[in-house]
């Protein structure tokens, strides 16, 4: 039996759960910043992003140490290699949450002239995907991970809807071009976060089953 090794793998698991909690937090704050025009919420995302970057490096170093010391095979190798891939997507989610927060700071100075309905819907859907991808990893739930992959289509379709909304907005009032462009950027970041959540879910599936489930992107 390899008790020390098992303890280290559990530690890797815990670190990933912690990083998952950080990215969920960052997304929540950036969505709140958007909805409430709350600059303080946006500032909190910056702090979280720094922590996420730091956590990524810690986990990366830990994974390389495990590979060097334990020469993992089978499910251990799948867990460690999946972890190395997942943290890249998680770190990107942190970056994009921070990008959204930056735009929110600019938008907070202008009035939102347009109904945010579809962007809000995107935000909720994207948050759900990230939360479920992290939960799927924690609970080793393949079915949940697969549902995350499927939900990406919803986010993609909403993005197309937001694009149309923004075109309509500019058509109706060309002075709103700048705001429309910023909101479109926010929507694009949400759409990308959905893609990263899908990637995480795919790595969860691989780490459990050994099969790559490609979501057809």
């Amino acid at each position: 039996m390899r008790k020390y090794y098992d303890t280290e793998l559990q530690e890797l698991n815990n670190q990933l759960v912690e990083m998952g909690a950080l990215i969920e937090n960052a997304i929540n704050h950036s969505v709140n910043a958007l909805k409430d025009k709350d600059v303080a919420e946006a500032e909190m995302v910056n702090e979280l992003e720094a922590k996420i970057n730091h956590k990524e490096k810690d986990i990366e170093t830990f994974c390389l140490k495990l590979i060097l010391h334990q020469q993992p095979v089978a499910k251990d190798l799948r867990l460690i290699s999946s972890a190395l891939k997942m943290i890249t997507d998680m770190e990107r989610i942190g970056d994009q949450a921070a990008d959204v927060a930056e735009i929110c700071k600019i938008l907070s100075k202008s009035s939102y002239v347009h109904n945010l309905e579809h962007i809000n819907e995107m935000a909720e859907q994207m948050k759900k995907m990230v939360t479920q991808a992290v939960n799927a990893f924690v609970t080793k739930d393949v079915v949940l991970a697969m549902s995350v992959c499927k939900d990406d289509d919803i986010v993609d379709n909403l993005f197309v809807q937001v694009q149309k909304d923004m075109i309509n907005l500019i058509t109706q009032d060309s002075s709103k071009g700048e705001v429309a462009f910023d909101l479109l950027m926010v929507a694009k970041y949400f759409e990308r976060i959905g893609d990263h959540a899908t990637n995480i879910a795919e790595w969860v599936i691989f780490s459990i089953t050994g099969d790559h489930k490609l979501s057809g992107k």
Binding site: M1, V73, A74, K75, D211
Partner: peptide, 19 residues
């Protein structure tokens, strides 16, 4: 065998958790 063994006993042996 070393990335996705089908049998639990194989997995336990190659990952050093046999016994």
């Amino acid at each position: 065998i070393f990335s996705s063994p089908k049998e639990k006993k194989t997995e336990e042996y190659i990952t050093g958790r046999f016994g």
